[in-house]
Amino acid sequence: MLTISNLTYHIANKGYLFQNVTLSVQPGEIVGLTGHSGIGKSTFAKVVAGYLTPDEGTINRVQNKRQPHPVQLIWQHPEQAVNPKWRIKKVLEEAGPIDDEWLERLQIHSSWLKRFPDQLSGGELQRICIARCLMTRPDFIIADEITTMLDPITQADIWDVLRQIAKTESIGILAISHHYELLERLTDRTLSFETLSKK
């Protein structure tokens, strides 16, 4: 289980962004996280995935030396999450040797590997980012608005695959979104960041 206890983070000269946030995610569970813009959801995601250090609080999954972080983050804008000058093959190899199983499950065409990021559509590139994430064999995934920029069909496709993977691989997913109907459809339960970060 991913357990986050009393997580607190402040921004210099601006005070606390959030305080004492406590939540947990079970393996294989999809938990929604919602809240208005600028409240600190994405910063919270970065703290949990190890990009930022919290002021206080504990997370029971941390990175071991020379290992990928057990909590992986998938970003809202895939085009900003990959090196634009690398071919897709190299982008994927960041996570280690390419595992064909994931490419197949995410319907990634082998011809894409030779291309550059700007030669794929938003939905295709997001699938590359998801494959890169899964190839690190994470225990938990934080999906930060990962389908906000995509059309409904691509959105449904991506979540269909991710839901199956969460189940078969027992990966817990924390899905951050503003989209109420999406979370309603997708998650086992949804938490409000406003309520969690009461100061």
């Binding site: 059309d151 409904p152 069909i153 691509t154 959105q155 449904a156 496709d157 991506i158 979540w159 269909d160 989209h179 109907e181 999406l182 309603e184 459809r185 997708l186």
Partner: peptide, 16 residues
């Protein structure tokens, strides 16, 4: 139709 049905508040079905 596909676009409409793919919405989460409808069938939430993708291309497959």
């Amino acid at each position: 139709k596909k676009l409409w049905q793919a919405l989460p508040q409808n069938d939430f079905t993708g291309s497959s």
